[in-house]
């Protein structure tokens, strides 16, 4: 197992290096940030000084060498915009997104598994109808539209919930609810399909012949076997939120990593862009590792 983790970490490290190189040069292609930070009437000297200060006058390859040297010492550079260490800015935003992702995915997973399993147990029953409805909604309703409609109804008209920002638990309700819909619909379908297969399996027949009660048949005998494909999709969806639910975070003014990334790209805040991408990449690596470990825990036939 440790050998497996080590091997995976090595492979991910290599791709991370490639990613850093690629993003470093690509982001430099977007142009000079000087004009975005200094006022329109700033003097040529002031501009020169700004460039000199941040090293934008050096050849790209020299800038890159410097960046790598700094990285080696754990220095991810400064945010141009906030004049704070880039990693500090990124980790703060990532903390918000991580909480958003964990809350949303916990709700999604629990709801999808319970409703999906019950839907599979009685195809055509009430839970099955909920499953069908939500997967249709999840697949077809664009999240930005859902977000705006939700704000109009629950915040503007009914005054039940705040429109945007953070602060109280109530601020979390709308973003979580809107982010919930798509993964819920998708995972529900996967749970349902996987459970239908599992519940018609031979070992479930054995459990019935043993006289096992209905609930343990579904949630003990069936579910653990049905979880393997489900976990893959859960990981995938969680990664999507971790990577920045850009649209949702922007609409709800949520200070997460998605919003940060978009803002820093628009402002050519290169150090922050690079740091965000590295944090996301590491998060996804850990996510995948967790999925693999979950696989091995659920199914004794899988050993690394």
């Amino acid at each position: 197992m440790t050998g497996f983790i080590g091997k995976r970490a090595l492979a991910s490290g290599i791709s991370l290096i490639g990613l850093v190189i690629l993003v470093f040069f690509l982001s430099r292609l977007t142009g000079d940030p000087t004009n975005l930070y200094l006022p329109l009437d700033a003097s040529i000297e002031a501009r020169e000084q700004f460039r000199e200060l941040h090293g934008f006058n050096d050849p790209l390859i020299v800038q890159f060498g410097r960046y790598v040297l700094d990285l080696a010492q754990g220095d991810f550079g400064e945010s141009l915009q906030q004049a704070r260490p880039a990693m500090e800015v990124v980790l703060q935003a990532f903390g918000w997104t991580l909480r958003l992702a964990v809350i949303t995915m916990t709700c999604v997973t629990v709801a999808a598994i319970v409703i999906g399993s019950l839907a599979a147990f009685k195809v055509g029953g009430i839970f099955d109808r909920i499953a069908t409805f939500f997967s249709l909604v999840g697949a077809s309703a664009p999240d930005f539209w859902l977000a705006i409609v939700a704000i109009v109804i629950f915040a503007v008209n009914l005054h039940w919930l705040p429109t945007s920002g953070t602060g109280t638990p109530w601020h979390w309700v709308l973003p979580v609810a809107v982010l919930f819909v798509r993964p819920f619909g998708l995972i529900l379908q996967v749970v349902r399909g996987s459970m239908i297969t599992t519940l018609s399996s031979a070992y479930v027949k054995t459990a019935r012949a043993k006289g096992v009660r209905t609930r343990p048949i579904i949630f003990v005998h069936g579910l653990r076997n049905a979880m393997l494909p489900v976990i893959t999709v859960i990981g995938d969806q969680a990664a999507a939120i971790l990577n920045g639910a850009v649209v949702i975070e922007t609409i709800f003014g949520f200070p997460g990593i998605g919003k940060l990334m978009i803002d820093s790209i628009l402002l050519r805040d290169f150090s922050v862009v690079l740091a965000s991408i590295m944090v996301s990449a590491v998060a996804i690596f850990i996510m995948n590792l967790l999925i693999d470990i979950a696989y091995a825990m659920l199914d004794p036939r899988i050993r690394y």
Partner: peptide
């Protein structure tokens, strides 16, 4: 309550009929 207790059953393919996990 009768299943397993009064009447038990075994099947053709034991690998498929035992829960793998």
């Amino acid at each position: 309550r009768i299943n397993g207790c009064k009447i038990a059953m075994i099947f053709q393919d034991p690998l498929a009929h035992l829960n793998p996990v």
